[in-house]
Amino acid sequence: MNRSLILMLIPYGCGALLLVLLPALLIFALAFTTYDGLAAPQWVGDQTFQDVRFDPVFPIAVHNTLIFVGVSLPLRVLLALGLALLLERRRRGVRFYRAAIYTPTVIPDVAYALIWLWILNPLYGPLTLALRAIGIDPPAWLVQPETALLTLVAVGLFQIGESFVVLLVGLHNIPLEYHEQAKLDGGGVWQRFRYITLPLLFPWLLLITVRDLLLLTQQSFVPAYLMTGGGPYYATTTLPMLIYAEAFDRLRFGHGAAMLLLQSLVIAVLVLVGVGLARLILWGRSV
């Protein structure tokens, strides 16, 4: 390998080392210290984890995070799948419809949060007024503890453009001959979906599911921070919100790192279990 090629890779390698690998390792070290951001970190063993265990907000944040991810993930995957199936084929206007579906995904987070704060305002928001006009008395979406978290989930459902595009590519990669042949053999719409589309789309579905699983936890931060501030009564305090508060409001970076470490481990385990299950299903089917 010549020297110029190595030179070309240096920024990438150094950047990845300094901005991803080093910070990732630093989490492990920080999680066993107390650190206020000023004085030198103090090694305290697993004291931080003991403290986290008795932090009254921690179980609430874990619960909220599990609900946020657990409800969002299947809905997002199913919605992207449904939309991709509907808008797969070439028809009049299909590109316009696809672009319309993708559009909410490119709206900046802050603008998106402001739009929804306006739309969902319990007194004069357009959605509230529209529902009243047809005789439904809507809940106070973001202001009520019972509905706040699920409202954040619903708002996020409009931003599924990336999964939608990935599934479209997946669908277009299924050879048409398979469908033609199945039709000749008398396969109905459902049978063709069940025995051709679904198995061949499976790797693509797995891809978007794993991606959402990796990203959704952190993605709960910005909407929760901007739209509810974690409230009302901690109803939308997810783990990233709690970690942020731990670090910046209470200056306990070590405790924040301990929570971040726990969060990352749980996500990693979930991804591994998910991929393992997927391989099991794939093996089962190919025999």
């Binding site: 080093l22 920080l30 650190y35 936890t217 670090a247 970076f253 924040g256």
Partner: peptide
Amino acid sequence: TLLLIPTAALWLPRYIL
């Protein structure tokens, strides 16, 4: 591997760096 690391979650150690 880099793609699989949710970099947005790394803000805390990055902030300290």
